[in-house]
Amino acid sequence: MKEELFVSGRINHLVDPYLNIWHWQIPLYLFLGGMAAGILCIAALYYLRGREKDYYTAVRITPFLAPILLVLGLVALFIDLRHKLYFWKLYTNIRLQSPMSWGAWTLMVITPVSFIWSALHIRDIFPRWDWKYKWIYEIEKFFNKYKRALAWVMLIYGIILGIYTGILLSAFNARPLWNTSILGPLFLASGLSAGAAATLLLSKNPAERKQFARIDLVIIGIELFLIIHMFMGYLASTQVQIEAARMFLGGDFTMSFWIFAVILGLLVPALLEILELGKVHIPAVVPPVLVLFGSLMLRFIIVHAGQVSRWLY
């Protein structure tokens, strides 16, 4: 028999008996950030490829969500901080090795960009919008002139933000479940599919909807592929990673992960979208809502389970 004990007791709040330092705030922040990244990337991409007309909603309407999502994400992040008065220290330091720092700075860039992008299209929603001050019109003019450049910035930072939401976790070597390079692409894919789902929800244009259903299907395919690979990776790796994988293969997180994140969040919406593309009538909101739900669950489960997975004890 083997026995392992903390003889001195050990009940550090939020660290014992297993790590529980990140609650709802971080997964929510990752979800919101990922979704915003997805929306902005898609918008920038279609804009740059000159498909603004075809994908009007995706380029001009859906991005209005981005600043809202980003601000909500920042609020969640802020709530998570335990030493709030020192929040500003994030912006007096650039720490290239810290994903958290990357994230903070990326948000610093992309949040204003998303605001500007929305501002440039505000009249698409409120035709009688008036900026009141002249100098604002000047600025608007300026950005309209350099809109392509702006789109490039938005695309690049969107991708960084999307990947960052995954890298943040996979940088933690200490948590065997997170310690896989697949998490970055997986979260990026999941963010893109959430972004696509947003347009699916908002768009009234059948052609656009059809295109986004297709995009979504492809991304879901990629996600499934990544998930399978992720587990194969764990199982072929060290004991601790095998143990981490076991949490999903019979362990405590099996039900929640496979039912909520995979079946309801990926397989069912994929099936519904295939049926819809095959002309079966499906209530329009169902697949995208399921995708969003799955994308959110994925983050919650991975963040939580990752904290439970450990090297020692």
Partner: peptide
């Protein structure tokens, strides 16, 4: 202490669980 924002990243990153809030 006066630079720490309490984000918890370091806690999550330590394989030994040596840190606490």
């Amino acid at each position: 202490q006066n630079k720490c924002i309490g984000c918890g990243a370091c806690i999550a990153s330590c394989p030994y669980d040596a840190r606490y809030p």
